[in-house]
Simulated scan of single mutants.
Amino acid sequence: AREQQVITNVFELDTRTVGSAMSPRDRIAFFLRDEPDAVIRLRIAAEPFSTYPVCEGDIDHVVGYVDAKDLFQRVLNNQPISLADDSLVRKVLIVPDRLTLSEVLEQFRQVHEDFAVIVNEYSMVVGVVTLNDVMSTVMGDLVSPFDEEQIVKRDENSWLIDGITPIEAVLRALALDHLPHEEEYETLAGFLMVMLRRVPRRTDTVTWGGYRFEVLDVDSYRIDQVMVSRVTDTSVAPVVPPA
């Protein structure tokens, strides 16, 4: 069954967009080019990642990226860290958010990189993606613990799910074949927005396919946590968007 899921995921690379595998904007740890040494050291300790975008002024003006290994090397050698040093900041791959995962893999291959910044049509940064993110999408539970972190099974009839969880992972966890209007969203949060036709608020619920989706926590319009419960009362009518 796992092997079959991997094969299915490989074929989905041509249809799934990069947004389904990326780390979204509000979870990006980045540096401003003029940040002092002390701030950089504190951030790599507080937010340990393998790669950090380097920006000029704000996150929407990315000028490159820095590899954590290069930063650690300077720390170990007691050398100052300055992102104004061009030898430290590498050229970054920028890709549009409508590319498929297959197209992103091809771009990684062409430029021999494994990290990219994703922008929308207005040149705003919407996320970052790594080669490992894409491969985890292919291999699913075989290599990626991330879905497990995003989906916590509380008991046989309820799950606690992060709003940014890719909808494919939600379908697998709930053993559903599909959700309505899947072409309009890529995450659980997107599903709730489409079904409610507005930005969800705490305690909002959607019932569909034998499950109730209840918004537990919202932070600055971002859906943090959703409780999904199996509905045993078949008389509960599903919530559907207005025509």
Rank of each mutant, 00 (worst) to 15 (best):
E183W: 00
R198L: 12
R198N: 11
A173L: 09
L196G: 06
A175H: 14
M193Q: 15
D177T: 15
H181W: 14
E183F: 01
P180V: 09
H178Q: 12
L179H: 07
L171I: 00
A173S: 14
L176W: 09
E186V: 00
E184V: 00
A173G: 01
P180Y: 08
E183S: 06
H181S: 10
T187I: 04
E186M: 03
Y185G: 03
M193C: 13
E184S: 12
L171A: 03
A175D: 12
L192P: 02
R172N: 11
A189E: 03
E183P: 00
E182Y: 06
L196P: 04
H181R: 14
L188D: 00
V194N: 09
M195C: 08
M195Q: 13
M195I: 04
P180F: 08
L196E: 02
A175L: 14
A169E: 05
M193A: 13
M193R: 15
R172A: 05
E183M: 01
A175Q: 12
R172L: 11
M195S: 14
P180M: 12
E182L: 15
M195A: 09
D177Y: 13
R197C: 04
A169H: 05
R197M: 15
M193S: 14
H178T: 15
Y185V: 01
H178F: 11
V194M: 11
A175V: 15
L188F: 09
L188W: 07
L171V: 02
V194W: 03
V194I: 12
Y185E: 00
R172Q: 14
M193I: 13
L171M: 10
T187R: 07
H181A: 13
L176H: 06
L192A: 00
L176I: 10
Y185S: 00
L179K: 08
T187H: 04
L171R: 07
V170K: 09
G190W: 04
A169R: 03
H181V: 04
L176F: 11
A175S: 13
E182H: 09
L179A: 10
E183D: 11
A173V: 06
R197F: 02
D177V: 07
G190P: 08
E186C: 00
L196F: 11
E184T: 01
P180K: 10
H181M: 13
L176C: 08
G190D: 02
E186H: 03
D177A: 14
L188R: 07
M193Y: 10
L196V: 06
L179I: 10
G190F: 07
L176V: 05
L188K: 08
L179E: 01
A189I: 01
V194A: 09
A169S: 13
F191M: 05
A173W: 06
P180D: 05
L196N: 04
M193W: 09
R172S: 11
R172P: 02
E186L: 05
L192H: 01
A173T: 05
E183Q: 08
Y185I: 01
M195K: 06
G190H: 07
R198C: 07
L174G: 02
M193D: 01
A175N: 13
A173Y: 04
L174N: 04
